[in-house]
Write a protein that binds this DNA or RNA. Sequence first.
DNA 1: CGGCTGACACGAA
DNA 2: CTTCGTGCCAGCC
Length: 108
Amino acid sequence: MKKTIPSTSFFQQVYRLVEQVPAGYVTTYGALAKALHTKDARRIGHALHANPDANKTPCHRVVFTDGRLAPGYAFGGPNEQLRRLQMEGVTFTQDNKVHLRIHLYQFA
DNA sequence: CGGCTGACACGAA
DNA sequence: CTTCGTGCCAGCC
């Protein structure tokens, strides 16, 4: 049977996790890295950058482990990402950091 | 084929 | 609390 899905590329798994993140919640690169049993969170960034369907993959819900947004966001700058997250209902601090304490999504 | 850079994270000063 | 340096792995030239 061909259910092993050997073609499941790494970023494909990343998308799966990111897609499961509900609105109003955010995830961190480190969390995704751990969820995928990897030691390097940078790969997560590469995967999101390779994101073929930004409309399907809410990469804007992925932030740093500190709760800050990515510096090189491609949707129009971190300003746009912040605006988008706020639209989702995510709250920010004066430091423009997401309240991971409240919006950090935990992978069961 | 080899080397460089990169949507990061963690530790130490 | 803030800032700098190093480590890790893969993609890209």
